[in-house]
């Protein structure tokens, strides 16, 4: 009887271990290799749809410092750390960026991106809360680089610089 219980317990532990290992594998894959994200909102029109796209982001190049101007990136919002936003990198550190203060005005300002920061902007300049409002963001807030779209099916294909 005792032997039977022991084998049942061993079985349960083994199974739990497999689940835990799988969880760890999943965590490492989605945090260090690539993950899929649902992005929605008007700020990246016309690149990304208003109603929501499923995109795949890789998490390797930002760790190696390989993101550059024109890349679509996932950034932890500096205004709300619980939110992750998708934007395009417009300027790297040391770049001079010119931007309009309001979408239909003609007042514009030039800023130099400080060390260790990037300048991010949405493709839809009329409806995007980005570096034009909160200034350059630290490079450390970049969470990944978007490179592929899987949904909707008619726009399945690589994404990225234009």
């Amino acid at each position: 009887m005792a032997g039977q219980w022991r084998s049942v317990a061993k079985d349960a532990v083994d199974r739990l271990l497999v689940i835990a290992k799988f969880g760890c594998f999943l965590h490492v894959t989605t945090n260090y290799l690539c993950s899929s994200t649902l992005v929605h909102g008007p700020s990246m029109l016309p690149t990304l749809n208003l109603t929501g796209d499923v995109v795949i982001a890789e998490h390797v190049s930002h760790r190696l410092g390989k993101v550059s101007r024109g890349d679509l990136v996932l950034v932890r919002s500096p205004e709300n750390p619980r939110k992750i936003v998708t934007k395009r990198i417009v300027g790297m550190e040391g770049d001079r960026v010119s931007f309009f203060l309001d979408s239909h005005g003609d007042r514009y300002r030039t800023a130099v991106v400080p060390k260790g920061h990037v300048w991010i902007q949405g493709d839809n300049v009329y409806a995007s809360n980005d570096s034009r409002h909160f200034g350059p963001v630290p490079y450390g807030l970049i969470q990944g680089k978007v490179f592929f779209r899987v949904w909707p099916p008619d726009s399945f294909g690589p994404l990225g610089r234009d």
Partner: peptide, 12 residues
């Protein structure tokens, strides 16, 4: 008063 670890804003 929390002590936190964070990556430097000037050098990630």
């Amino acid at each position: 008063g929390d002590v936190i670890v964070f990556s430097s804003p000037t050098n990630h």
